[in-house]
């Protein structure tokens, strides 16, 4: 049994303006928002994105409804909105370059010498997804990165990659299916039921 309060318990306290609970959620999620932002909009703007995302959490915590999904998904949607808003002012090429850099970083995570086992203890879900990403075929991982991290639509990805739209959709579906199955295998069948 974990003595750590759940994200959902913490966000309920944040809704009552509990700064300590807010700080705990920052410690759990700031690293994710910062890394994503730093790769897409640069490290300086990334600090602003992190601050703005967490201030949105501070303001909107009362709107979180645990019946509609996990806190992590809800909050990262807020962060993603902030990042995409920053990305809109940039050209397509710059966004593609940022996505390719992320793709390379994810691929390199599978390189010898990287110890993902240590991360599994502290960040289990993310570590499992990272391991699954590294094992995806290159073209499947790329569509995931272009769509999720750089905010491209599947039509735009088809133009960027030169692949037919149907192929992009198929690659996306297969990639997500593998990620989901990998998580389900590792974390138990209840995970798939949340989808």
């Amino acid at each position: 049994m974990s003595l750590e309060p759940s994200d959902e318990a913490l966000v309920a306290r944040v809704a009552r303006k509990d700064v300590a609970a807010f700080a705990t959620l920052y410690d759990r999620y700031a690293r994710r928002v910062y890394a994503w932002s730093a790769h897409t909009v640069g490290s300086e703007e990334a600090e602003d994105v992190v601050q703005e995302s967490f201030l949105r959490l501070w303001d909107k915590a009362g709107q979180f409804d645990a019946r509609r999904g996990r806190f992590g998904s809800w909050f990262m949607a807020i962060a993603r909105h902030q990042i995409v808003r920053q990305l809109r002012g940039r050209g397509r090429d710059q966004r593609v370059i940022a996505a390719d850099e992320i793709d390379r970083v994810l691929a390199d995570a599978a390189a010898p010498g990287r110890d993902l086992e240590a991360e599994v203890w502290t960040n289990e879900g993310a570590a499992l997804v990272l391991r699954a990403l590294t094992s995806l075929p290159t073209e499947q991982r790329r569509v995931i990165v272009l769509a999720y991290f750089a905010g491209f639509t599947q039509s735009a990805i088809a133009k960027i990659t030169g692949a037919p739209l149907g192929t992009v959709k198929k690659r996306t579906r297969l990639a997500l299916q593998k990620l989901r199955e990998r998580l389900a295998d590792a974390l138990g069948s209840s995970w798939t039921e949340t989808g």
């Binding site: 994710r32 928002v33 949607a77 962060a79 993310a126 990403l133």
Partner: peptide, 8 residues
Amino acid sequence: TDELAGAL
């Protein structure tokens, strides 16, 4: 969705 950002 949240774990992808965690992976990065």
